[in-house]
Simulated scan of single mutants.
Amino acid sequence: MDQRVSFITLAVRDLAASRAFYADGLAWEPALDVPGEVLMFKVADRVVLSLWDETAFEAEVGQPINRGGGIAPITLAHNCATTEGVDRVLAAARVAGADPVQPGEQREWGGYSGYFADPDGFRWEVAYNPGPIGQEVLP
């Protein structure tokens, strides 16, 4: 198996709310938009973020979604070339309706990052990582 990720799929409660947040609020351009079913965004070379209506997700995966308390044990990340870029993205997410979870701050690992949540509570890290791996993921 090749070492890569092709799709990241998130089951969402309200696809219209996700569309309003990502497409309208953050101005992301959908690569595929099937109302009531799925919304897909090309987020990198050969990588797609898929937002799938949770009922359709459960029908295909075959198990009910466990939505217990707390946050999902996953973060998605958007890296920026500067700390100012981090603050701009966090501000844009707030305008789009994101729940500002944590503002940008210096981290003990040498970078700068903050977090926001999308309409389903999935946490996005917005980060400036000055190390080689952080620079490698920038466009």
Rank of each mutant, 00 (worst) to 15 (best):
S50Q: 14
G68D: 10
L51V: 03
L15H: 00
G121D: 03
G62R: 09
N79G: 08
V34S: 09
G97K: 03
G97E: 02
Y22W: 11
V48W: 12
N79L: 10
G97P: 05
D99P: 00
L138Q: 09
A20W: 00
F57P: 00
D118V: 00
R19E: 04
N129D: 15
P35M: 10
P130M: 06
T83F: 01
D87E: 12
V43A: 06
P130D: 05
T9W: 05
I71G: 10
V101R: 08
Q3F: 15
S6A: 15
T75Y: 07
R123K: 14
Q106L: 10
D14W: 02
P64T: 14
V38Q: 11
G121A: 08
W124N: 04
G110L: 03
A56M: 07
G110T: 05
Q63V: 12
D2Y: 10
S113R: 07
A117Q: 13
E60M: 13
R123E: 10
D45Q: 04
P139D: 11
P130V: 08
F41V: 00
A23F: 00
R13C: 05
A81I: 06
V95S: 10
L39V: 02
S50C: 14
M1I: 08
E84M: 10
A27Y: 06
F21E: 00
P73Q: 11
L10R: 10
H78S: 07
D87M: 01
I133M: 13
D33E: 15
L49I: 04
V61P: 01
P30D: 05
L76Q: 09
E105D: 09
A77P: 08
A44H: 04
A117D: 07
E125G: 05
V5L: 14
F57K: 01
L10W: 05
F7Q: 13
Q63F: 15
R4I: 07
E60I: 10
A16Q: 15
S50Y: 04
A59D: 12
S113Q: 09
